[in-house]
Design a protein around this nucleic acid. Structure first.
Lengths: 337, 337
DNA sequence: TTGTATGCGTTATCAT
DNA sequence: ATGATAACGCATACAA
């Protein structure tokens, strides 16, 4: 009687190859060993279909090659894209990803952090709007879109520049009177800078603007009323609208249609995020594109960088404008299927 | 000199509380212990902010409470939705998820399986189109949308019924001549049954149909040519089209517009998947909705079910039809924002 | 009821 | 260069 049918261990390999345990370990870890031994061990490994046990490995080395990602969900396109690109960035470095979908639930976020720490992850990347989140000093943490603490780096798009770019684009496209529409957390976070950037852009171009900002609990209908109240004799007084996200832009465009306003002929709309249909087809609207692959890469790089003298507290990555059919402009160069 | 600043262990807690190691273990695992002891241990745990090391735990118990999910990506809405709901189903059972985004790469899929096994995951859920995938018997595996082996359960939508439903819907909506359009893997998998179901539905309703099926490498333009070749004097001979996925439907609708065909007035289009804009807004087109939450739940349930007498080889879950603006029908009951 | 000792699979430090 | 052995943090069977 040896053991059950459980997975073979190094000991089994050693016995099979007729060598000592340490020798097997060396072969597995690429440490030089006599050729004859190496071959025998390799054969035994193949024969038994041996797989190293990374739990035992992690127990020794105190490194698990695993990173936890905290994100509200994987369904909203921006989040889905982040998950995808962070996964790629981790894979490139042979790291695994523990996915923690939090549904914006603070309690769950905190639970996931504890879980990640119990799992001895090498670090956490988190997009969370929970201000009171408790993060142990000992666990490296990178925040997306929100500055949590001075010693926790925050990676984000250049939201201010994005807002500014939106204003400038609208001005360039001939708008004379524009609006900024925002919904979402009133919590101080990076995306909130889109507003300031937009105002700045409008001012520098002498473009008159109005703002309508509603908070999370408020009904969407407030936007509809706001827009309706700016219609005189069937004409909307705005000829350009900047929405804080593509998701909002989508809803606003629907509302505008309902109000008999033609997009982009009567009113042009620019969103923010760079959302594409089905993740890889056309942009859902004209938009300020977030550099998601770069954000992902930066998060992972910052997190895993061993000998970083001092981590930067805030990293803003450049955004671009993309045409998506809701502004007056040339059709995109390339047709996508 | 004790140790570094590394995380506290049970030993530290025991020392702090002045009890034995085993006692701490018992408290942590909820095994009855003298009240006075329990309190002291709990205090020490709080004081040191002790977190159990699940790696060491898993090493003993040979259970890791972790499941790997193999999926092509997280950006396409159907996959994104699966990831989201599987995460929820796992969370409910206090299981963690190791996300493995494979990009349809067989080599990567195989690598991820090895990685998962090294991580001693308790099981794998995989949506993969790789026929040659090698899966060790010892690792529980649940396949989505594809029967891999007799002893590997496959969870999928009722694709045949979905195809049939699409045909019947088109018939009910007054179509007289319809088409089925498909692209993708020619590999035998469950979604391929959509075609058979559709044919079946057409036949039973006496609805004439044509098919255009192109394989993965073929250019999308073949569909465009196919459609163009069925236009006589500006009119398309089809008044209904069933597309194998919403993603294809999206492209086809664009093409139809280019060909000056009005959707849904000239030609109605039904897709498959139940994709919504931004994950939670309107359907992107009229569609056969896959029961993603139920698929997720079923996968997890089958995977983690301990005392399953014999796992069913194939589980098909019921689909539904949803209006999404590309068919002639009443507007949806509920307005979404 | 509480404490002690052993082993899980691996790595690293030793002698050999 | 290779083999034996201790140690990682925890669970558990067993002794006290």
């Amino acid at each position: 009687m040896k053991k059950e049918n459980s997975a073979p261990t190094m000991k089994d390999v050693a016995r099979e190859a007729g060598v000592a345990l340490g020798t097997v370990s060396k072969v597995v870890n690429g440490i030089p060993v006599g050729d004859a031994y190496r071959v025998r061990v390799e054969e035994a490994i193949r024969k038994l279909n041996y797989q190293i046990n990374s739990y035992a490995q992690g127990l020794k080395s105190n490194k698990t090659h695993t990173v936890a990602l905290l994100i509200p969900n994987t369904q909203e396109p921006f989040y889905a894209s982040l998950v995808y690109h962070i996964n790629i960035a981790l894979l490139k470095r042979k790291y695994r990803m523990l996915l923690c979908s939090t549904d914006y639930d603070s309690g769950l976020e905190q639970e996931y952090i504890a879980m990640a720490q119990q799992n001895k992850v090498d670090g956490i990347i988190g997009l969370t709007y929970n201000p009171g989140l408790v993060i142990e000093e000992s666990t490296p943490f990178i925040a997306i879109d929100r500055s949590m603490r001075p010693n926790i780096p925050c990676v984000t798009s250049d939201n201010f520049a994005g807002g500014q770019l939106a204003a400038e684009k609208l001005a360039d496209l001939g708008c004379r009177n524009v609006a900024f529409l925002r919904t979402g957390s009133s919590l101080s976070n990076e995306p909130n800078k889109r507003k300031a950037g937009f105002e700045n852009g409008c001012l520098s171009r002498g473009l008159p603007y109005e703002m309508k900002i509603i908070s999370d609990g408020d009904p969407y209908s407030e936007f509809e009323e706001f827009l309706a109240s700016h219609i005189r004799e069937g004409r909307l007084s705005f000829d350009g609208i900047f929405c804080v996200t593509d998701g909002l832009a989508y809803s606003i465009i629907k509302t505008l249609r309902k109000l008999n306003q033609k997009v982009p002929d009567d009113v042009q709309v620019i969103g923010f995020d760079g959302t594409r249909h089905f993740g890889n087809k056309d942009y859902t609207c004209s938009t300020i594109v977030q550099p998601v692959p770069e954000i992902a890469e930066m998060c992972v790089e910052l997190l895993l960088q061993e000998n970083m003298p001092s981590k930067p507290p805030l990293v803003c990555l450049p955004v671009t404008y993309a045409y998506g059919g809701t502004t007056l402009e040339a059709a995109p160069e390339k047709e996508e299927r």
